[in-house]
Design a binder for these strands. Structure first.
Lengths: 339, 339
DNA sequence: TTGCATATCCAAAGCGCTTTGGTAAACTCG
DNA sequence: CGAGTTTACCAAAGCGCTTTGGATATGCAA
């Protein structure tokens, strides 16, 4: 069942049927209804590819997907993707994923050249100035999850990573902690660097010199949380507070403390940034975990909206957002014991 | 730069240029090379949507993506998706994901009707006879990851879940265990039921009546592994062996044992099915975990291949595979202490 | 009555590719 | 040498939609 058949069935022209279905004003109300009814009854579905060819728009948003064996398939990415894809379908758009093997630039070019997608979502993880230039040269709207320092203007959506660690560190300071460790994400990622800066800025303001031994970088896994915690707690002067970049890491840190016979929320204070991942519940941990919180899934939702705006011609300047994070106090944080 | 411009530039017809580029035989070798060079130099990229309209094929494979808040975004699914998407791009196909909110059938219909995809990959998780009928009525090739018992013939790829638990249970029996618990996946999923059957079949052959208290069903999370282990180990007659449906669960079970002062590989034997998830390393656990193993990512790779075959007209019967699983013995399993 | 908006509808021209059904020239071979 | 093959190319007809640029009919003011 195609447009031609439907219009013949109705005794109307293809033009009118098309315009009726697409809500144009120059078609009588009665006709519009008649067309809608017939389309429904006959199960007419416009052919997406014909529509795409005619309009030059695909209503597909491309996302690069790091699948190489050496890259971690990260639960954070997945939850982000879930939000993105869910919202995209609300807005009648589809999500096409393109595997990044090694070179992300190559994957982006592939996606852009085929004209399959109207816009692309890039992971901040792979962003650098070179990629930014490449993207601009591809003449395809794109939006970045994350940020990098750059002169060029581009659409992005990020959470306030600096603020998150700044707040967290400030809280620990206010509780009386002086030795505050930062179990951070991978060193090559901008969000990790932003967080590290927030941490050291807060310390600096309190007149404390950030100690390099208190700063760990690595993938945000349970195991790293465990290892890093063990590592810093074994120092000559162990920290009394740990700030983890993810609830996953915090779970590992809890384990480390348990093994060392340290009571979380008493002997050592722990907090984390909570991306609200579906399988991790900071409020159910023992003790419940204090967090800075910003659901990564919501970021996916927002980016889908922004991508569609961008496709519809919104200026780049209106597509640059930084979300603040919430601070949720629970019992894993307390004044240091010695205080 | 489109076909018309390119052909004019070359002083050839569109037909010849198109055929040259697509490797048809009725074009002179010299011309073919000239065309290829010009296309390269001018950066000509055929418009994907025009091609799709003309050929009726999109080279896109659709995958349903469970994103609803109530559904777990499961690491297993993600690794599967990574394999699928990686292989699809090797075969010059793209992956389009369609969010399942609540009703999977509705999502499938949406995807099929638009004609955007050439084939669909369904998750066994959502499969039932009703869905199967729906899919057949949609006249779109599809392939299922998993299986259900059904009279209808359909393309599928599954691992031998029955065999996995059969083997695992058999191993425990051979070691001398009599009380063997099965910490299984969600009760409504076919792979969980297959595994439960493998477990009870092996027990049955050994003349042991499967005890319902030893069978737990639930999402394959760390927490459930912990809870289920605690639960069965607290029974009047606790099991001496635990078989977990996932390494993630096994990690939880290890924790439970540690808390109870039980040494894994001595006081209690544990094994698991290993999907080879990127963040979990059974061989690095303490003690290293005995597993039945079948990388779920490889299943994704295989399904991408099968989907492309199916699109190219391969008969359904040639697209029905069940993979055996490996049994890898490590030190988390040993004869029971009392034996 | 005439002139001019306004409301409805339509024929036909694309969108950029593939594919059918040729043609003309060059080659084969009895 | 002429009939049949083979080789290399092409014009034009789609694929199924949107959109442009009218056409026709009706309503209303002058």
């Amino acid at each position: 069942m195609n447009l031609k058949a439907l219009s013949e069935h109705l005794g109307l022209s293809q033009t009118t049927v098309s315009r009726a279905l697409n809500g144009y004003s120059d078609v009588a109300q009665e006709t519009r209804e008649r067309v809608a009814r017939a389309a429904q009854e006959l199960g007419y579905r416009p052919n997406a590819n014909a529509k795409r060819l005619a309009t030059g728009r695909s209503s597909i948003i491309g996302v690069s997907f790091p699948t190489g064996r050496n890259m971690l398939v990260d639960p954070h990415f997945i939850d982000f993707l879930a939000g993105l894809s869910h919202q995209a379908s609300e807005l009648d758009h589809d999500i096409l994923i393109s595997a990044i093997k090694n070179d992300p630039g190559e994957a982006y070019k592939r996606m852009a050249n085929k004209g399959t997608v109207d816009a692309m979502v890039l992971l901040g993880l792979y962003l650098n100035n070179e990629i930014l230039e490449l993207m601009h040269s591809l003449k395809l709207p794109f939006i970045v999850h994350g940020r990098i320092p750059s002169d060029a203007s581009y659409a992005y959506m990020d959470i306030d990573n600096h603020g998150a660690l700044y707040q967290a560190t400030k809280l620990m300071l206010q509780l009386g902690h002086k030795r505050i460790a930062n179990l951070d994400g991978p060193v090559n990622q901008s969000f990790s660097r932003d967080r590290a800066k927030g941490w050291s800025d807060a310390l600096g303001e309190a007149g404390i010199k950030p100690c390099v031994e208190y700063l760990c970088h690595g993938n945000m896994t349970d195991e790293n949380g465990y290892l890093f915690a063990k590592q810093v707690l074994a120092l000559e002067e162990p920290p009394t507070a740990l700030i983890c970049s993810s609830v996953i890491m915090a779970a590992g840190a809890y384990r480390a403390c348990a093994e060392l016979g340290l009571k979380v929320g008493e002997d050592v204070s722990i907090m984390a940034h909570d991306d609200d991942l579906p399988m991790y519940f900071p409020e159910k941990m023992d003790p419940p975990l204090t967090v800075t919180r910003s659901p990564i899934r919501a970021a996916g939702v927002e980016i889908a909206k922004m991508a569609v705006d961008l496709i519809n011609g919104a200026p780049i300047e209106s597509c640059q957002k930084v979300w603040p994070v919430d601070l949720i106090f629970r019992s894993s944080t307390a004044p240091p014991k010695s205080a």
